[in-house]
């Protein structure tokens, strides 16, 4: 009976001990993935910003500029690309819609970002673009990989259409979460005019004919929750200028936009709550369940060995009664 019990315990011990590495190194990469149908919006604001008045072609101070950023997963496109890519793919269509204090559109820049659903590596396929221009991204954009490391990453900048390092600057605490702080500085770079201009009749081509060019510089800051790789907060010190050409008259340059862009408070709270929830799910796969499973496996193995040892111990003969000591004779 003891030997059967020890064999059953041994089977369970191996089951739980094997489950630990299988969950961590096989199930985790297969299960921890960005959903292909994700839909997410984000509102960022730049208070006391500087904005170009296209009527007078002069920069003016405005109370607030709002940026609405939407990400929407295209499931059908992802499934189509997956067939040739041979790995799980997410296709995000995004729109950065910038609105002035009067509610009028300042700019809108669409993007299509295609990437591996688990590793976050870019996947190159037809349709990958920024504002209608085909691009070949390197590095990450919007989100870091699961289990983010304390190191620099390559980050794609949509304005310049180039990739540059985003530096790990230390570990911080943000609203109760341990986060990694990353920062990227994009130096003044000549960038294309947006395809959609804020004034009707003005097109990128008509501006180009005047010889005026658009320049951009930014300091990008992200507070990233390392388990999920999700930024819980972001800021950008963003500057844009128009330089040269007949459009500016005798001026060498004019500020098109300058502002310190920050996430809106209600979106920060929403993002932190969402990331805390997702963090628990990822930790369950990478830490909680594998560790518990391994401990249980070792415990059951010890129990199985103990039972087996007791089963193998030779049985002592039954006592036949108390033997009276023999009388001592002299």
């Amino acid at each position: 009976m003891r030997r059967t019990a020890s064999l059953v315990l041994l089977a369970f011990a191996v089951f739980f001990a094997a489950l630990a590495p299988l969950l961590r190194w096989y199930a985790f990469p297969h299960l921890a993935r960005i959903p292909a149908n994700q839909y997410q919006d984000m509102v960022l604001e730049a208070r006391d910003a500087t904005l170009l008045d296209y009527g007078t072609m002069r920069a003016k101070k405005v109370s607030k500029v709002t940026i609405v950023q939407t990400l929407k997963g295209d499931v059908e496109a992802a499934e189509k690309i997956e067939k040739t890519a041979g790995r799980p793919v997410v296709v995000w269509d995004s729109l950065s819609y910038v609105q002035g204090p009067d509610g009028k559109m300042v700019s809108k820049v669409p993007e299509r970002y295609i990437f591996d659903a688990h590793s976050q590596d870019p996947v190159h396929a037809t349709g990958e673009m920024v504002d209608g221009d085909p691009v070949t991204r390197e590095g990450i954009e919007f989100k870091w990989p699961f289990l983010t490391q304390r190191r620099d990453y390559e980050y794609f900048d949509a304005q310049t259409r180039t990739t540059g390092p985003i530096h790990y600057e230390g570990t911080r605490t943000f609203r109760g979460l341990t986060v990694y702080y990353f920062e990227q500085t994009v130096p003044w770079t000549k960038v294309p005019m947006p395809k959609t201009m804020p004034v009707q009749g003005i097109t990128p081509e008509s501006v180009a004919r005047t010889g005026t060019t658009r320049w951009y510089s930014t300091v990008r800051k992200f507070w990233v929750e390392p388990v999920t790789g999700a930024p819980v907060y972001g800021e950008e010190i963003h500057k844009e200028e128009l330089r040269g050409g007949s459009l500016l008259g005798d001026r060498a340059k004019v500020t098109a936009f300058a502002g310190h862009v920050k996430m809106r408070e209600d979106y920060i709270e929403h993002t932190v709550a969402l990331v805390k929830h997702n963090r628990t799910l990822v930790l369950a796969l990478t830490s909680y369940v594998p560790r518990t499973s391994l401990a249980l496996g070792l415990l059951l193995l010890a129990l199985a060995l103990c039972l087996e040892a007791r089963a193998r111990r030779p049985q002592s003969p039954e006592p036949s009664g108390t033997a009276d000591p023999a009388p001592v004779t002299t």
Binding site: V14, Y26, A27, L31, R33, V68, V75, L95
Partner: peptide, 25 residues
């Protein structure tokens, strides 16, 4: 253990459908 993990991983998560919600303006 192998059967359980391979089974769960093969099932994966459903990809769902593209959201009908628009990109916000």
């Amino acid at each position: 253990a192998l059967a359980l993990v391979l089974g769960i991983s093969a099932l994966g998560s459903p990809s769902g459908r593209t959201s009908p919600k628009p990109l916000l303006t």
